Computed example of a mutant assay.
Amino acid sequence: MPEVIFPGPEGRLEGRYHPQKSKDAPIAIILHPHPKFGGTMNNKVVYNLHYAFHDMGFTVLRFNFRGVGRSQGEYDQGIGELSDAASALDYLQSLNPNSRQCWVAGFSFGAWIGMQLLMRRPEVAGFISVAPPANMYDFTFLAPCPSSGLIINGEADRVVPPADVTGLAEKLQQQKGITVTHQTVPGAGHFFENGMDEMIGNVQDYVRKRQTEPHIR
């Protein structure tokens, strides 16, 4: 898989780009956990999400936020990281102008950034939000949530209490015009040391189902 360097708001950003042969393949970007707590694009959840999307026929890009790995800049409280994500999506779209669909997936801090990106980018057709940190960050910006998606978390998550994720999902499920699916993986912690295969399987089942129902927003 080719390493790529592309321009971000504060200098270059480092990524991994995994294209499909089909010019109209759907595209997805994958967003990693908190940079200050060891989060990188090589996190196991991010890595597995990347390949899960590629296996489903997506052209996929994951990348390091500013200040992580070879990406330039410094951590910016989520504000700059959202701009990084927007630049990554711009870059992915520039390489795939004929893509028929766009998805965003994020894990933990990356899920929070991904949900914000939804509000900026109406072309995003679906999202995967893995262990969104509803106990740490405000998600009220999702009013309304512009696209349907999957929220998935571990039953034994000690970083983000499952009750907080359930509360977030229930709020979003009340909105009209979209469908937010919520799933909990039994016995799984925040990093899915147990339950990784089940989590990835659920993600793939959800995305494949959505792919056969393109009318769902």
Rank of each mutant, 00 (worst) to 15 (best):
1 M>K: 02
1 M>S: 09
6 F>M: 04
7 P>G: 14
8 G>H: 02
13 L>S: 12
15 G>T: 10
17 Y>C: 00
22 S>Q: 14
24 D>G: 08
43 N>M: 10
44 K>S: 13
44 K>H: 14
44 K>D: 12
46 V>I: 07
48 N>E: 15
49 L>P: 05
50 H>L: 04
57 G>M: 05
64 N>V: 05
69 G>F: 03
69 G>I: 10
73 G>T: 09
78 G>R: 05
80 G>K: 02
80 G>R: 00
82 L>M: 11
83 S>Y: 00
83 S>N: 10
86 A>V: 14
87 S>Q: 15
88 A>W: 06
92 L>Q: 08
92 L>G: 01
92 L>V: 11
95 L>G: 07
98 N>L: 05
99 S>M: 10
100 R>H: 07
109 F>Q: 00
115 M>R: 03
116 Q>L: 13
118 L>C: 15
120 R>D: 15
124 V>I: 12
125 A>H: 06
126 G>A: 08
131 A>K: 04
135 N>G: 04
136 M>D: 15
137 Y>H: 07
139 F>A: 02
140 T>F: 00
141 F>C: 06
141 F>L: 11
147 S>V: 15
148 S>P: 06
152 I>D: 13
153 N>S: 09
155 E>F: 08
158 R>C: 06
158 R>F: 14
159 V>G: 02
160 V>K: 05
161 P>Q: 14
166 T>G: 08
170 E>N: 01
171 K>G: 11
174 Q>R: 12
178 I>Q: 01
178 I>D: 14
178 I>S: 10
190 H>A: 14
191 F>V: 13
191 F>E: 14
195 G>P: 15
198 E>N: 05
201 G>F: 03
201 G>W: 08
202 N>Q: 13
203 V>W: 00
208 R>D: 06
209 K>P: 05
209 K>R: 09
216 I>R: 06
